[in-house]
Amino acid sequence: MHTLLIIAACGLILAFAIGLVRVVRGPTKGDRLLSLQLTGTTGIALLIVLSNFGENNALINTAFVLALLAPITTVAYLSVIKTLSATDGRGESDDT
């Protein structure tokens, strides 16, 4: 593997870890949601980097699958938030 790719992969994992710190500390539900966005995009970037300059086509297919399936969990999570704050009226504090 080209050394440049290894550096890029490690950098992406570092970015992912930093983003994760916010998600762990995040007070509100919105921050939890950011983790889905973060994992999606960083995961796709990692897959592209790991595909070794496009030599391994399967990884780019996996990146497509990931891109298409990221919305599902986010929309599912949003449908949960919607009912919570609307009907139960416990407000946005992180009570879940």
């Binding site: 889905l36 994992t39 897959l47």
Partner: peptide, 17 residues
């Protein structure tokens, strides 16, 4: 529970990596 479900989703993605 809700945050553990969210972590589980991120976990699933990393496992596929």
């Amino acid at each position: 529970i809700l945050s553990s479900i969210i972590y589980f989703i991120a976990f699933g993605l990393l496992v596929s990596l």
